[in-house]
């Protein structure tokens, strides 16, 4: 890797100030960023660790019943501490990577990175969560803007993510055999006012909502409601691990399984 400065502030305000330096970058768990640096694919002037900021750690239940996860909370803590308050989200966190990745990787890093095969973006979009930053609150529907692209501005920090808790939810992840990221992952959340279905791993546009499935399930919440629905393969990802058609097919299978899990 190239040389860089390193800062580990203890407040969000100090972190924002530190990130004002040109080409400074936030460091979460480093599970994506450090390998990128080792490959010399990025050359930040400074890394600002989120790891020392107490107000960005942990899972808590807000007065309105929503679950807030601090932006620097590692996956392992979400898997453990959200198990009671939002089990489907906890289950998602528990399926990310391996124990080492879960001990280091953070929700803020994952969501900011918006890898098209990552799990959290599906959970955030499927839940209709709110991404809270040092500057504003961004609805999930506005936050994800295509592969590796988000609404975040330069130097903006995800301080927490607020999840409304659905009546039932399920994350169905079909593993890419090598990376064990999602070849296709479907996060389905059933709220009193409707169903949300978010799909990761499948599309060249990154995480997306499958609105036809949502409409069908709003009419009738049964696996069979999806029977005649097919997603258009045209925008699906094709690679070594699966064709567009295969991914499109998996979206249906995983959605159906998520409905079954919520019944």
């Amino acid at each position: 890797m190239y040389n860089f400065e390193f800062e580990k502030p203890s407040t969000i305000a100090d972190a924002v100030a530190a990130l004002a330096t040109e080409d400074a970058q936030a460091l979460g768990g480093g599970q994506t960023l450090i390998p990128t640096l080792k490959q010399r694919l990025a050359a930040p002037s400074k890394l600002v660790s989120m790891g020392g900021i107490a107000e960005m750690q942990g899972v808590c239940v807000d007065d309105d019943g929503s679950v807030s996860v601090g932006g620097a909370t590692p996956h392992v803590a979400v898997a453990r501490d959200a198990a009671g308050s939002y089990p489907a989200l906890a289950a998602l966190a528990g399926q990310i990577g391996d124990p080492a990745v879960r001990n280091r990787g953070t929700i803020g890093g994952s969501v900011a990175n918006n890898d098209p095969a990552a799990c959290y973006p599906a959970g955030v979009l499927g839940s209709g969560a709110t991404v809270v930053t040092n500057a504003r609150q961004i609805a999930a529907d506005d936050f994800f803007q295509g592969m590796f692209t988000t609404a975040l501005d330069e130097g903006e920090i995800i301080t927490s993510i607020r999840f409304p808790v659905p009546q039932a939810a399920s994350y169905q992840k079909f593993l890419q055999p090598a990376s064990r990221f999602a070849l296709v992952g479907v996060y389905l959340a059933r709220f009193t006012d409707g169903v949300r279905v978010a799909v990761t791993g499948a599309s060249e546009d990154g995480v997306f909502r499958w609105s036809e499935a949502e409409q069908a399930l709003n009419k009738e919440f049964r696996p069979d409601a999806l029977m005649d629905l097919r997603i258009n393969p045209a925008n699906m990802i094709a690679d070594l691990h699966g064709s567009k058609e295969y991914r499109a097919h998996l979206v249906s299978v995983m959605t159906k399984r998520a409905v079954e899990a919520c019944m």
């Binding site: 055999p177 090598a178 990376s179 690679d239 070594l240 691990h241």
Partner: peptide, 19 residues
Amino acid sequence: NCAYDENGQLLSASFMDYA
């Protein structure tokens, strides 16, 4: 699956793609 594309680029050049 050690796979090359038609230009000879190794498609499975890391554990992200080589299972």
